[in-house]
Design a binder for these strands. Structure first.
Length: 558
RNA sequence: UAUCCUGUAGUGUAAGGGUAGCACACGAGUCUUUGAUUCUCGUAGUAUAGGUUCGAUUCCUAUUGGGAUAACCA
């Protein structure tokens, strides 16, 4: 499970070239710049891993900087959630968390500098007028009538903006670049706007706020970021990013874009994720079906699995849709290594071992992880009555069914071999109990019976069975690209069966004392983790993922 | 009808002027006191057409497919 890079990605190639050219004395400094207006999701994981791991690989540093330039949408609550998620993933940023808002004074003076050099002006056009004059991607724009104001007037108006003498939307500061540029972002982009709003950190100190393009790149420069790694959607911003660096004469950070990661059956739009929460499709941001990091964590995903997943997926510039199966394969692979094995019967039927003495009970030992002896063992009780899974018994089994059936042998995992010789049904023909004989000399580990049993079943002793609640999760959507259809709303693909609650599963006592973050494998059933809603009266477990089930697959094919 | 980015098995990603590799998925076996895990084998790929070259998936040209861009969002 090594974290090796199988080869260099294009970003690493650029960086190694920079290093060999002695650029920035070989110093590497990246940053992860979330906007604190939502929770981190699976898509962010890639940006986090790339920024942190690339720096790590070259002995560099990574800043965490909140891009908090829009006070209307941003909240401190998100800041804390984001920090927690990044730490959970296993990364630590350099020093304290930083904020674009820390640089508002500096940014203001940058703007003044541009104005003084005749490279920015106050535009009093309305938003509609500005949009009209902007042109379209195929048609050049027109100059604003305010474009050629004097430096003095611009300076005065900008100060008035800052001093709160104008209402929201009355005027903006624009960079003076080129209204005919093929790149729309170079058509005199707005760099400052008026917002009389309380900022989560600067309070009411400011009523003007810089736009993304006048904050992000400048923050990179202020922090001496050498490589600013972001997703492809910012590619069109790069010329502006560079224009500002040149004209402000500040540290030349370099922006490099990579393709964001898309995972099938998952969505990463903050707006759509929020809607799932507010309209009750899920129970919250950390609902285990959510693609948020907090959801995945609650679901039982391991941080190292997410990191490894991102490394396997790789870094490139083409659009991609990663199959969910790959993520699932990675998580299964990791969980298989670390999960403690326990037995839980989801849909119990009672088995009575008729030749086992009434009132007798024995203690059997079972491995916590058969692959690793040093993971130890734990005990479970065995007696005359046990539960097995309903679908592990069939009156009239198909071919190749090697579980329990009349006159068939089966091994009870870690216990004895039994043979069914009778069963009872209710009025509907539903099996209510199965009667078996056991072979005393077939005890697990000291089997001298010579009997062969192809099937092995998990079971729980009726006497000591613990009732637990299980939440079985499946993908949230029934379509691989729920938000990729123009004619169908993503909510139409909501999977109504994405949560199935088993309220009274039968579990061995071991689960009573299991830790909150201990990965578990319910044998033959899947990987689980204790849910935070567990308490002294009720234990709740979330299914992270099922085990592969080639029997079910075989049945399906028929 | 502008500009930019991008086309390698089903998916993702390598290599790179000289044998197209890896992972997942899929299929067939194997092992197994979890129908899990393990192990083995298999199916399957350089968008198209020209050009340069002894040799092109790689370099060049054209065509073609996909994506992005017109918020006082980030």
């Amino acid at each position: 499970m090594s974290e090796e890079y199988k080869s260099k990605n294009f970003i690493e190639e650029i960086i190694e070239e920079d290093i060999s050219n002695g650029k920035h004395e070989g110093r590497i400094h990246t940053r992860f710049p979330p906007e604190p207006n939502g929770y981190l999701h699976i898509g962010h994981t890639k940006a986090i891993c790339i920024n942190f791991e690339t720096a790590q690989k070259y002995g560099g540093k990574t800043n965490l900087r909140f891009d908090d330039t829009n006070p209307v949408t941003e909240e401190t609550e998100y800041v804390e959630a984001i920090k927690r998620d990044i730490n959970w993933l296993g990364f630590q940023w350099e020093g304290e968390a930083l904020y674009a808002s820390d640089y508002f004074d500096q940014l203001y003076s940058y703007a003044v500098k541009l104005i003084k050099e005749g490279k920015a002006y106050i535009d009093e056009s309305s938003a509609e007028e500005m949009a009209d004059m902007k042109g379209t991607p195929t048609q050049p724009g027109k100059n604003s009538p305010y474009r050629d104001r004097s430096v003095e007037e611009n300076l005065r108006l900008f100060e008035e903006m800052k001093d709160g003498k104008h209402p929201d939307g009355r005027m903006v500061l624009r960079a003076k670049i080129d209204m005919a540029a093929p790149n729309m972002l170079l058509r005199d982009p707005v760099i400052y706007r008026i917002k009389h709003a309380e900022h989560h950190r600067t309070g009411d100190k400011w009523c003007i706020y810089p736009m993304y393009d006048f904050a992000h790149g400048q923050s990179d420069s202020i922090e001496n970021i050498t490589h600013s790694l972001c997703s492809l959607e910012f590619m069109h911003h790069r010329p502006l990013y560079n224009w500002l660096i040149e004209n402000l004469e500040i540290f030349p950070s370099r922006q490099i874009e990579f393709a964001r990661m898309n995972v099938s059956y998952m969505i990463t739009s903050k707006r759509r994720l929020l809607k799932l929460v507010t309209e009750g499709y899920v129970t919250g941001w950390d609902d285990p079906r959510m693609s948020t990091l907090s959801g995945l964590r609650r679901r039982g995903y391991l941080p190292q699995s997410l990191r490894r997943f991102c490394n396997i997926v790789g870094v490139a510039k083409r659009d991609n849709l990663i199959e969910l199966e790959l993520l699932e394969s990675v998580i299964r692979d990791d969980l298989n290594e670390v999960a403690t094995r326990v037995m839980v019967v989801l849909d119990p039927i009672k088995v009575i071992i008729t030749n086992y003495p009434e009132g007798q009970q024995e203690i059997l030992s079972t491995a916590n992880n058969p692959k690793y002896e040093d993971k130890g063992t734990h005990n479970m009780t065995f007696s005359r009555e046990i539960y097995i899974e309903r679908d592990d018994f069939m009156i009239d089994p198909p071919k190749k069914y090697f579980r329990l059936a009349p006159e068939k042998n089966v091994r009870l995992k870690g216990a004895y071999i039994i043979t069914a010789h009778d069963y009872k049904t209710d009025d509907n023909g539903r099996v209510t109990e199965v009667h078996c004989n056991y072979y005393p000399e077939s005890k697990s580990g000291q089997d001298t019976s010579g009997i062969k049993a192809k099937g092995v079943l998990h079971w729980v002793d009726v006497n000591s069975a613990l009732d637990v609640e299980l939440r079985l999760y499946d993908r949230l959507f029934t379509d691989p690209t729920p938000d990729g259809h123009e004619d169908v709303d993503y909510l139409d693909f909501y999977n109504k069966d994405s949560l199935q609650v088993v309220s009274k599963a039968k579990a061995e006592q071991f689960l009573k004392d299991v830790g909150d973050t201990e990965s578990l494998q319910f044998m033959r059933k899947g990987y689980f983790i204790k849910d935070r809603e567990s308490n002294d009266d009720k234990l709740v477990f979330n299914r992270t993922i099922t085990l592969k089930d080639s029997w079910a697959k075989m049945q399906k094919k028929k």
